[in-house]
Every structure is written in structure tokens, then in C-alpha cells.
Write a protein that binds this DNA or RNA. Structure first.
Length: 446
DNA sequence: TTTCATT
């Protein structure tokens, strides 16, 4: 059916409304298609604007690539279609360079000339804004890792180009996961995660990722009910959550109590993230005595990151998504109460403080900041599952924290996820120690 | 000064 040396092609810059059946005619003219699959989001099913294409014959793929790649632009796209071997066909990113501090006038060709002496260039693109203005940087892909390495050795810092503010940068391009972290940081900034504690926690952490992942899963679960705006944000978060930087969160995190959540939960992502990161009284979300955030609490200083916009105004989709969600929360202040499902504070917890879970469900946390109370560690660990108790130990005489505590989940997977994500987690100068609580008798050596 | 996306 397919030749053994067939090439799987990646096809990019496809309008999102085109499905397989729409794409087939475009590609069939180069040969019989073995497989054509539009790439969709795992959770939302949303078209990602690209596809994989395998022809039965290797030759068809080569023909299609030379006829189409960068050669034509599909309706509604502002960049030409991409038709090239999928990353899975070679091993991709270890031969791709990021080149920074170029002059603004330099073209693809100029850059290519600069790198040609080091090997065969597979790809060379100066990054440009929508207006075509150079961003002063480029990606250069060589045939081999060694060639790329040679270019770094010779060219990095070797000179300062006219119009550049510092010497030439030549390094391996960010990996997919580094890009994800960068993106997440941007969103974190946009969401206003700038409280001192949020900075200590860092926007890069496994913890933040776990939060994102949980939020995305929660929103995705309800996406059928959501406004398009909120869905866009959910998709973005899903994308970020998919970047599991160090593979720490091996077990998908199940929203502990999202399943019976009403549709209005659309307000959760934007409000919940600053709320949970505002641990330790640095919260950007002032709370009322009831424990609920005050209406319009997200930006109490009146500085909203996104002023009201006309829906018709051309804005960045992500920005639009968050602006949309903010609008949503503003229109339904009561929806703030629905933050609760993401960070449940079961009333039962207040009464019966120290319930233990089954073996393997209880974790021990040491090196807690002095000021952390039950409430803070609850908030810190609730993203990993259903917390049945959270207790910081305090000195009877002074009422001061002893800087350790216990959290119990209702299942071992949650406990493991919490340990994986939070053990070694740096807060201030200290690193948390998070491990399974020892069974009572295991503590006695005799 | 890190892209448009890679099941």
C-alpha cells in the first residue's frame, strides 16, 4: 500500500475550517495518498491548523513538497503553506539554531551566506512581524548537529552587526518545552502573577504547570457549555499544560470536584490562578470574611490588564480570550463563588482536622515557611487531588508553626503527583521536603 | 532576540 521509504509530511498553515476531505484534492494531484490526518487537540478536538500527510510513493511526497512548500498561500492565511518532512521523520531540533542580534536589514539570503560555510542549510528564516519588519533574529537549520555546532563555535559572539545592540547570538533553538515555559510565563504575567509569593514560586515551576494542567482539564471537561472566549483560553491553557517540562506529572491530574460544576465555571481559570498563587497573605485577591473573593477583586487597584474592548477590534486571540473571560466575570460577580470547585475548602475540614487517608495517601511536608498555616498547605496541594485533611503542626506553647505538616488525599495517585511536583520545591531560601508519611510503626527502629 | 502548528 505504501512504499517502505515513504516520507511522512507535515503540512502547516492550513485554514482551520479545512478538514481532510477539503485537503485531499489539493494533495491528490501529486500522487495517491496513503494517509492524511488533520491534527486536532487531544481534549477539545479543535483543529490545530496543520496536518500529517503520507503518500504511497516517496516520489509523490517530494513532488508535493517542491510544488507547494512556501509556494502558495491558502485562503485566509497570511503565510504560505508548509509542506515538509514531519519532525518524526528525522530527529528534529538538535540541528536548528536560533540566531539573535541580527541587523534589521538582513534577509534570509544574508543569513544563509553567513552560515553556509559550516554545512548544508536545510532551512533559513528571518523572523518577521506581521508588517514584514525583521525581528532581528532568525532560525537556521543544518543537515546535521555537528554542522550546527560548528557554526555556533565560530559565529557566536564573533561580531556585532550594524544596528544590533550587542554581539551576534548563535545557539541551539529553544526546544518545544522551553518554548512552552516561555509562553506560560507570558500568560502568567498577563494574569498578574506578580505577588511576592508568586514570584518565589516562579512561573516556571512544576507546580504552576500542575495548576495549569488541572485548570485546563477542568475547563475542557465543560467546554461544551462554555462561551467561545473561554474555550479559546482553555485551549491555550491546554497547550501550555501539554508541556510537561520535566515529566514530573506522570499521572494526569483529575479535577477533584469539577464534575458537578455548573456551566458558569467559565470564570474559574482567570480568577483561580491568581487566587491560589496569592498564598500567604500576599493574595492579589482580597477576601471577604466569608472567604469568598470580593466582587471585582481580581484587580483591586483598578488597573485591569485589559481594558474593555470592542469585540470587533482586531486583537491577539489570547488577549481577546482573557478579555472575554474578564468581561464574563464582571458581568456575573456571583460566579466568583464558583472558584470553589477548583479549590474546594470542604466545611468538614474545619471540624475534623486530622483525618488520615489510606496507606500511600498521606504525605509529609517539611521546610514549610514559618507563616504557612493549614489553609496555605491546603491551597498548595489541592490541585493534586481531593484533600481530606491538611495540617500544619504548631508548637503548643507559642502557637508557632513547626514548619512541617501533613496532607492526606483520598487516593495514592494524588499523593504521588503531589510528591513528584512539590518535593524539592523552592520557596524563598528553603526547599520543601515532600514524601509519603511513614506508617506509624515504621518510625521505630527497635 | 525564540517561530505557525508535529499525532
Amino acid at each position: 500500500m505504501k512504499e517502505p521509504d515513504a516520507i511522512k509530511l507535515f503540512v502547516g498553515q492550513i485554514p482551520r475550517h479545512l478538514e481532510e476531505k477539503d485537503l485531499k484534492p489539493i494533495f491528490e494531484q501529486f500522487g495517491r495518498i496513503f494517509e492524511l490526518t488533520v491534527i486536532k487537540d487531544k481534549y477539545t478536538g479543535l483543529h490545530k491548523g496543520c496536518a500529517f500527510l503520507t503518500y504511497c510513493a516517496r516520489d509523490s511526497a517530494l513532488k508535493a513538497q517542491s510544488a507547494l512548500h512556501e509556494q502558495k498561500t491558502l485562503p485566509g492565511m497570511n503565510r504560505p503553506i508548509q509542506v515538509k518532512p514531519a519532525d518524526s521523520e528525522n530527529r528534529g531540533e538538535d540541528r536548528k539554531l536560533f540566531v539573535g542580534m541580527l541587523g534589521k536589514q538582513q534577509t534570509d539570503e544574508d543569513v544563509r551566506k553567513m552560515f553556509e560555510p559550516f554545512g548544508t542549510i536545510a532551512e533559513c528564516t528571518v523572523l518577521r512581524g506581521p508588517d514584514g519588519a525583521s525581528k532581528g533574529c532568525a532560525f537556521v537549520k543544518f543537515q546535521t548537529h555537528a554542522e550546527a555546532q560548528a557554526a555556533i563555535s565560530t559565529l557566536h559572539s564573533s561580531r556585532t552587526l550594524p544596528g544590533a545592540s550587542s554581539s551576534l547570538v548563535v545557539k541551539f533553538a529553544d526546544t518545544e518545552k522551553e518554548r512552552g515555559l516561555r509562553r506560560m510565563q507570558q500568560v502568567a504575567t498577563q494574569l498578574g502573577m506578580f505577588s511576592p509569593i508568586a514570584l518565589q514560586f516562579g512561573a516556571y515551576s512544576a507546580y504552576t504547570q500542575a495548576l495549569m494542567q488541572q485548570q485546563a482539564a477542568l475547563v475542557a471537561a465543560h467546554s461544551a457549555y462554555l462561551s467561545p472566549m473561554a474555550t479559546m483560553a482553555a485551549v491555550q491553557m491546554q497547550h501550555m499544560a501539554a508541556i510537561n517540562a520535566n515529566g514530573l506529572i506522570a499521572t494526569p491530574i483529575t479535577p477533584s470536584s469539577g464534575t458537578s460544576t455548573p456551566p458558569a465555571i467559565a470564570a474559574t481559570p482567570v480568577s483561580a490562578i491568581p487566587a491560589v498563587l496569592g498564598i500567604n497573605g500576599y493574595s492579589p485577591v482580597p477576601t471577604q470574611p466569608t472567604g469568598q473573593p470580593a466582587p471585582d477583586a481580581l484587580y483591586p487597584n483598578g488597573v485591569h490588564p485589559y481594558p474593555a474592548q470592542s469585540p470587533a477590534a482586531p486583537v491577539d486571540p489570547l488577549q481577546q480570550a482573557y478579555a472575554g473571560m474578564q468581561h464574563y466575570t464582571a458581568a456575573y460577580p456571583a460566579a466568583y463563588s464558583l472558584v470553589a470547585p477548583a479549590f474546594p475548602q470542604p466545611p468538614a475540614l474545619q471540624q475534623q482536622q486530622q483525618r488520615e487517608g489510606p496507606d500511600g495517601c498521606n504525605i509529609f511536608i517539611y521546610h514549610l515557611p514559618q507563616e504557612f498555616t493549614d489553609s496555605e498547605i491546603l491551597q498548595m496541594f489541592v490541585p493534586f487531588g481531593h484533600v481530606i485533611s491538611a495540617k500544619v503542626f504548631v508548637d503548643r506553647a507559642t502557637n508557632q508553626s513547626k514548619c512541617f505538616g501533613f496532607v492526606s488525599f483520598d487516593n495514592p495517585a494524588s499523593a504521588q503527583a503531589a510528591i513528584q511536583a512539590m518535593n524539592g520545591f523552592q520557596i524563598g531560601m528553603k526547599r520543601l521536603k515532600v514524601q509519603l508519611k511513614r506508617p506509624k510503626d515504621a518510625n521505630r527502629p527497635y
